[in-house]
Design a protein around this nucleic acid. Sequence first.
DNA 1: ATATATTGATTTGATTATCGAATTAATAAT
DNA 2: ATTATTAATTCGATAATCAAATCAATATAT
Lengths: 178, 178
Amino acid sequence: MDSYQQLLIALRRINKATDIGAKRLAKDTGLTTPQLHTLQAVSDATSLTVGEVARAINLTLATTTSIINGLERKGLLDKHRDVSDKRRVIVSSTIAGNKLIQDAPKTLQDLLERRFGELETWEQSFVLAALQRVAMLLDAADIDAAPLLHTGAIERIGDNSTGNAVDNVYPAQAAGSK
Amino acid sequence: MDSYQQLLIALRRINKATDIGAKRLAKDTGLTTPQLHTLQAVSDATSLTVGEVARAINLTLATTTSIINGLERKGLLDKHRDVSDKRRVIVSSTIAGNKLIQDAPKTLQDLLERRFGELETWEQSFVLAALQRVAMLLDAADIDAAPLLHTGAIERIGDNSTGNAVDNVYPAQAAGSK
DNA sequence: ATATATTGATTTGATTATCGAATTAATAAT
DNA sequence: ATTATTAATTCGATAATCAAATCAATATAT
């Protein structure tokens, strides 16, 4: 087997492990996987527009809106309109949302950190440099090419009946039913 | 920023790139992402039991059954009972299923292969060794630890109304409605 | 400035994913 | 023979996901 094949296998293992990790964490925290990823993205960035969140988690705006509403209902995210451009809606993490991310049992991450920390300094640089190289190889395609690699699994969103807060989302026609 | 943080960032980039790749490919082939992963897993292995598929794609048996049924309806997978242990159902890829995987536009993979191939031999070994090390660090946790890393997105399954073939799935009670 | 196009987000409607719990059948253990 | 375990399916409920239609705000063109 050539080294490229081995590279793919290693990538799949990595993807699968992180996927398993994400699912466990989601379950532990009582969120779904897409909700967890969304909250994570917002929490990392402090505040993002809905569109930015969608790009970060790689889902459509429709889906993202729905996930965000779910998290808002749970009190983990807040939304408000951008004042300078009223088309935009800014999403930010609540205290509870940040706390949830902070307190989440990051088992995989801890383990990785511990083990990575156990490596000699030179080896750390070595591993890091290689990973960054791989990321670059893949990233270039990112914007415009794509497909396959992943052997792990994937995800989804949710309900929408009750609250689309943000004051009144479309102020101009408040509650008109079409 | 310490090198561990950079490691996480690199991993996220890798995960995101492969996620985007998988989604594009799924779309190109007219499958959903979980369907693609499932078909891929079965096609790689030639034949697997439903439980093995579930483990490979990291979903529950219930979900896996449903996805497999969808692929069966599309004529991409076949099912049949294991003769030596009739609890087991063996899933295998049809010609159409294999062809779909074969013919799939593996843009990301091609690009990665090309670029990886462009590296000097010593550098290939270097990158590969590092990736395998990371995979090991994560894998150990795999079975029993977990959480977070993934910044990409995830996936799902399908309908179940019409055909659950496999001759008659439960021969003993053929078509009784409970 | 008015009409036209573009952008950002939401809603709607339809499909698929996903899981837990209950069920069914087959095999294994006592 | 009972009893337990294992493998897969079904059912019911919820969440995810997207495309298309809609709505409002901003940008661009005429």
